[in-house]
């Protein structure tokens, strides 16, 4: 298989207005920088973005917020972005906050072909409002769980460390985060990688995401890989 495309512009060229897209990353760690830049350039609007966070003011998904391309964010934590806050408070931007584990598992369910999952996260809170719940015995005690639906996303856009033309992916350190399960969850999955290596050169035992889940792959350029909170200790 050769799923290689030239660059981010080609990879995202059929993403249309009002599409639902998943974007991998935790904070600014492991985000698909090239595809975000390409989406800003293309100017596609009315997007629903499923992503753990919403970037910062001038980087990550924050770039797409500045250009008013996002209609709705589905995230677990969005605290680092003033323009986000302004759009949310003015009602321009719809925001659905969901527990982080629920977000991850709703992606996983989509990739595993399961319509829904049960989780205890959010029971008894406003997250549970309007949701079906069910009790199960856990370690001899009856416990309540919420039914949460698998995500249905048109595109998943992920960032990996290494990949090959088959679409096999390897992630690095905590830049893995949401990328593998989002890669499994998109109807069309686009992977940008720091290093695209020849087919056959990745150790099959070390693959995190098998290429069957990936439809397009390219080697990204000019990665900034910004650090959100630089914390160090003295020698």
């Amino acid at each position: 298989m050769n799923k290689t495309v030239k660059n981010a512009d080609e990879a995202i060229k059929d993403i249309q207005d009002y599409a639902t897209i998943m974007l991998g990353g935790f904070g600014l760690c492991g985000i698909p920088e090239n595809c975000i830049t390409a989406l800003v350039k293309k100017g596609v609007k009315g997007l629903t973005c499923i992503s753990n966070n919403a970037g910062v003011d001038n980087f990550g998904i924050g770039l797409m917020l500045n250009t008013r391309q996002v209609k709705k964010m589905i995230s677990s934590y969005v605290g680092e972005n003033e323009e986000f806050e302004r759009q949310m408070l003015s009602g321009e931007l719809e925001v659905e906050l969901i527990p982080q584990g629920t977000l991850a598992t709703r992606c996983l369910a989509a990739g595993y072909g399961m319509p829904a999952i049960y989780t205890p996260a959010g029971v008894g809170t406003e997250v549970a409002i309007g949701k079906e719940s069910r009790k199960f015995m856990v370690e001899g005690v009856e416990k309540e769980f919420l039914m949460e639906m698998a995500f249905d996303a048109d595109f998943a856009i992920v960032k990996a460390w290494k990949g090959d033309p088959h679409g096999n992916l390897i992630f690095r350190e905590t830049a893995r985060n949401f990328n593998p399960m989002m890669a499994m969850a998109g109807k069309i999955t686009i992977a940008e990688v720091e290093e695209l290596v020849p087919a056959g050169s990745l150790d099959p035992d070390q693959i995190h995401t098998p290429g069957i889940y990936v439809h397009r792959i390219f080697q990204g350029v000019n990665y900034e890989k910004r650090i959100e909170q630089r914390t160090v200790r003295k020698r």
Binding site: F26, G27, L28, A175, K225, Q229, R230, V232, R233, K234
Partner: peptide, 17 residues
Amino acid sequence: PFEGEEDSDLINAGKQT
């Protein structure tokens, strides 16, 4: 990390290196 050894791929849940 020691100063100069920060790795942008290696953060905690508070997004600290």
